[in-house]
Simulated assay, not measured.
Amino acid sequence: MQQHSWDVIIIGGGSAGLSAALMLGRSRRSVLVVDEGRPRNRFAGHMHGVLGRDHTSPLDLLAAGRAELGRYDGVTVRPGEVAAASVAEGGFEVVLDDDGRHLARRLLVASGLRDELPEIPGLAEQWGRGAFICPYCDGWEQRDRRIAVIASSAANVHQAQLMRQLSADVTFHGHGVELPDEERAGMLARGIRIDDRAVVEVIADGEGALRGIRLADGTDAPVDAIFVGPAPHPNDGILLALGAETAEHPMGGRWVTVDPMGRTSVPGLWAAGNVTDGRSSVPYAMAAGSLAGAGINADLVEEEVGAAIATA
Rank of each mutant, 00 (worst) to 15 (best):
A64D: 09
V149G: 05
A288C: 03
V75T: 00
H249Y: 09
L240K: 05
R211F: 11
W270G: 07
E303S: 03
R129I: 00
L108M: 03
R145L: 15
D205Y: 12
N274A: 14
G176R: 12
W6S: 02
S265V: 04
A104M: 14
V177G: 12
G74L: 01
R279Y: 08
S290H: 08
A67L: 07
E207S: 13
A64M: 02
E302G: 14
G208M: 07
E183V: 13
I203C: 11
E81D: 07
E303Q: 05
V157S: 15
S19C: 04
L32P: 06
A124H: 13
E303N: 02
D181A: 05
L239S: 09
P232Y: 12
L210W: 13
G49K: 06
Y284D: 14
E303G: 15
V170F: 09
C134W: 09
R211G: 11
L62K: 08
G229W: 07
E68C: 00
I9C: 04
H48D: 06
G80H: 10
D299L: 05
A84E: 14
S167H: 12
S281Y: 05
R71D: 04
E125I: 09
L123S: 15
A241E: 03
I120V: 15
A198C: 06
V87L: 15
H173V: 02
R53T: 01
A154W: 04
S290V: 08
V301R: 05
T276V: 15
R129C: 01
I238V: 11
R53S: 04
L103I: 01
R106V: 08
V75E: 02
L300M: 10
G130M: 07
A85N: 06
R114W: 10
D98K: 00
V223K: 04
G273K: 05
I192T: 06
S86T: 15
W270L: 05
N41C: 03
L117D: 06
G243L: 13
D115S: 00
L179W: 14
A294L: 15
S111K: 01
L240M: 01
D217E: 12
D60K: 15
L24H: 01
E68K: 00
V50S: 10
G65T: 09
A288R: 08
E302T: 10
G237F: 05
D60N: 12
Q165K: 08
V200Y: 10
F227I: 08
G52H: 00
G70M: 01
R254Y: 01
S27G: 09
S152W: 08
L69T: 07
P250Q: 14
G186K: 03
A241W: 12
